[in-house]
Design a protein around this nucleic acid. Structure first.
Length: 616
RNA sequence: GCCUCUGUAGCUCAGCGGCAGAGCACUUCUUUGGUAAAGAAGAGGUCACGGGUUCGAUUCUCGUCAGAGGCUCCA
């Protein structure tokens, strides 16, 4: 048995060797310093071009850097060009970037020194706040860029900063300011919104060009663009923000994914349930969602009897009602209820992103009601399912994150013993299944620890997909029970889990992952039969029926009076795995001309040969 | 919700204070073709919507709606 301190120890170990390992390396790299210095250079340019601009913080980030600045008047995007130009000029001056360590009083004096650009009480309020936040006993340092102009006047720019930096501004040669955004001071909505300027920097111009080209390339595989081009889904302003309409091919894709998941779950002893899209508010009063989730719910509905209904933002309370509908014995547990449950969440307008973040979406949801002694086994089984799913979907660029309790916060409910048991079960399940993970204290739900799968989209943004959560709260609120061996009532533990996360998000991520070229089993259309001339149409239809009925394939025929070249081009752009080309020779020899999406023309073969090829 | 940007044909985009443009897609005609775009003609628009400025607004300006990149939040 692990004690709490052991868990903490494990936490630190996995922080060190897990997914954050790469990051530590990056933080020690020259590139990291270069980007940090580029942020300072930008700040220097800004203080010269915009007197009155207040600097706050400017760190390096994964693909570049940013600086949050409070401008006296709104910054226009076109102004980035002039800032960039000023940066280029300043960089060439070969300003040394020097570190000086000072006492707290000296630091304060420097910050309030209005003779230094960017300093003085008129513009340095954020720097003062940052200074105050530096813990007692920690070194306080500034980094300074100095230069002499033609008239012998010295110009200084210095910034409160831990560093480290490169030695001279002339090292900053390959950079670009990429975008402008708003960001709250210290990330708090209640604070003032500052202007964030994003930029990127590399050691060479070639690397910078390559990076920018890569981004352009990545934009082409954006799921919203491919979603339209491939006929997967659409949005309509008349339907509403964040509410996707699924087109035939996208709907097929959903069904294929859902079928796969249902099959995997059935093998693991899940039982299907179906519950309504809305329900009485009473259900959500009992669950407590109404009290801490209300701003994420669509407006309530009242009927004539003054009963209030809400669109469900989650499925759990419905599944709980089914659990409660009969007396449960310890022998009945675990009970596993699964549903492709469509939920509605009123996301803020600015945060809806295609189908990756929609207002109506379908979770591959299930709730497991388990005895405490079954927690480990059941959690392990869920991890096993998740690994199977990731493998089947060929997803590799994911990371697993165990969200644990932040010991310093009091937002969590439930007793420590349960938390420890649940956290141990999660860690052990992951270890047993050989799943590498990082531990993230403070990322637990308020009702229990959880395991999340996180994946990057085409543009490198993190998205949470699969999730498994242990919950002690809802069983308590709904007073769930089972009768134990001792013939006394006991409280079950709930596990919430959704290996895909949602069908919408998963399809969005898969679309980007495969750039629309889905593997054969998943492709909405698997085979397109191209008839060369009208006289081959009958054979094409015949073959379609054969492949559909005898082999269960999803087949389309193209009998338009277009040239073969054009039909091939279009099928290729639709990323259809196989094309069967039918002409006179095929009628004569009883063959089909096979063309593969990846490998091109495979030549003529019998239909049987083709079918066995698709099964490889 | 907040900051910045965008909205012109089904799609990708030019354009402009004075009659609305291209390519692809669509329709019709010719072409019946063997591995990534045959040829021709035609049709298609309240320039997102609503105010304001102006002799005149798709163009300038304000507001609304929708979309994008961020922030916050999240599957």
């Amino acid at each position: 048995m692990l004690s709490s301190s052991d868990i903490l120890e494990t936490t630190f170990q996995s922080l060190g060797k897990g997914g954050t390992n790469m990051k530590l390396k990056y933080e020690d790299s020259y590139l990291y310093r270069l980007r940090h210095s580029a942020a300072h250079l930008m700040a220097q340019a800004v203080t010269e071009l915009y007197p009155g601009a207040k600097l706050s913080i400017g760190p390096p980030i994964e693909n570049g850097f940013y600086y949050d600045i409070d401008f006296p008047s709104p910054l226009k995007e076109e102004e980035l060009e002039s800032i960039e130009k000023r940066m280029k000029d300043l960089a060439k001056l070969d300003q040394r970037i020097e570190r000086t360590e000072v006492s707290r009083d000296e630091a304060k004096a420097l910050i309030l020194d209005a003779t230094i650009p960017g300093m003085g009480d008129a513009v340095a309020e954020y720097k003062l706040e940052l200074l105050d936040a530096i813990p007692e006993g920690e070194a306080i340092s500034f980094f300074e860029q100095k230069r002499m102009d033609r008239d012998g006047v010295q110009h200084r720019f210095l910034d409160l900063c831990r560093g480290p930096h490169v030695e001279s501004t002339k090292e900053i040669k390959a950079f670009k300011l990429t975008s402008i955004a708003g960001a709250y001071w210290r990330g708090n909505v209640k604070n003032k919104m500052l202007t964030r300027i994003y930029g990127t920097a590399f050691e060479s111009k070639e690397e910078l060009e390559a990076h920018l080209a890569h981004i352009e390339e990545a934009k082409k595989r954006d799921h919203r663009i491919l979603g339209r081009e491939l006929g997967l889904f659409m949005f309509s302003a008349r339907v509403g923000t964040g509410l996707p309409l699924w087109l035939p091919k996208g709907a097929q894709l959903r069904m294929t994914l859902a079928d796969y998941m249902n099959h995997e779950q059935m093998r693991r002893g899940y039982q299907p349930v179906v519950t309504p899209h809305l329900g009485s508010i009473k259900l959500f009063e009992t669950s407590g969602h109404i009290y801490n989730y209300r701003d994420k719910m669509f407006p309530f509905m009242e009927d004539d009897e003054k009963e209030t209904f809400i669109l469900k933002p989650m499925n759990c309370p419905f599944h709980i009602e089914i659990y409660r509908s009969q007396m449960r014995s310890y022998r009945d547990l675990p009970v596993r209820y699964a549903e492709m449950g469509t939920v509605y969440r009123y996301e803020q307008s600015g945060e809806v992103t295609g189908i990756l973040r929609a207002r109506g979406f379908t979770q591959d949801d299930a709730h497991l009601f388990v005895r405490p002694d079954q927690l480990l086994e059941e959690f392990t089984s869920v991890v096993d399912l998740m690994q199977a799913v990731l493998k089947k979907l060929e997803l590799t660029n994911y990371r697993a994150r165990v969200g644990t309790k932040d010991p310093t916060s009091d937002k969590y409910i439930g007793d420590d013993e349960n938390w420890t048991l649940a956290t141990e079960a999660i860690l052990k399940a992951c270890d047993d299944k050989g799943l590498e993970y990082e531990v993230s204290p403070g990322d637990a739900a308020f009702y229990g620890p959880k395991l999340d799968m996180i994946i990057k989209d085409a543009l490198g943004r993190d998205w949470q997909m699969g999730t498994v959560q242990v919950d002690y709260n809802l069983p308590e609120r709904f007073e769930l029970e089972y009768i134990g061996e001792d013939s006394k009532p006991h409280r079950p533990v709930m596990i919430h889990r959704a290996p895909f996360g949602s069908l919408e998000r998963m399809i969005g991520l898969l679309t980007e992952q495969f750039a629309g070229a889905f593997p054969f089993w998943l492709a909405p259309v698997q085979v397109s039969i191209l008839a060369i001339a009208d006289r081959h149409n009958d054979l094409a239809s015949e073959l379609m029926v054969k492949l559909r009925d005898a082999h269960g394939m999803r087949v389309e025929i193209d009998t338009r009076r277009e040239t073969l070249g054009k039909k091939i081009r279009e099928a290729q752009m639709q990323k259809i795995p196989y094309m069967l080309i039918i002409g006179d020779k095929d009628i004569e020899n009883n063959t089909v001309g096979v063309r593969c999406r990846e490998e091109g023309d495979l030549g003529a073969m019998s239909l049987e040969e083709f079918v066995s090829k698709t099964k490889e």
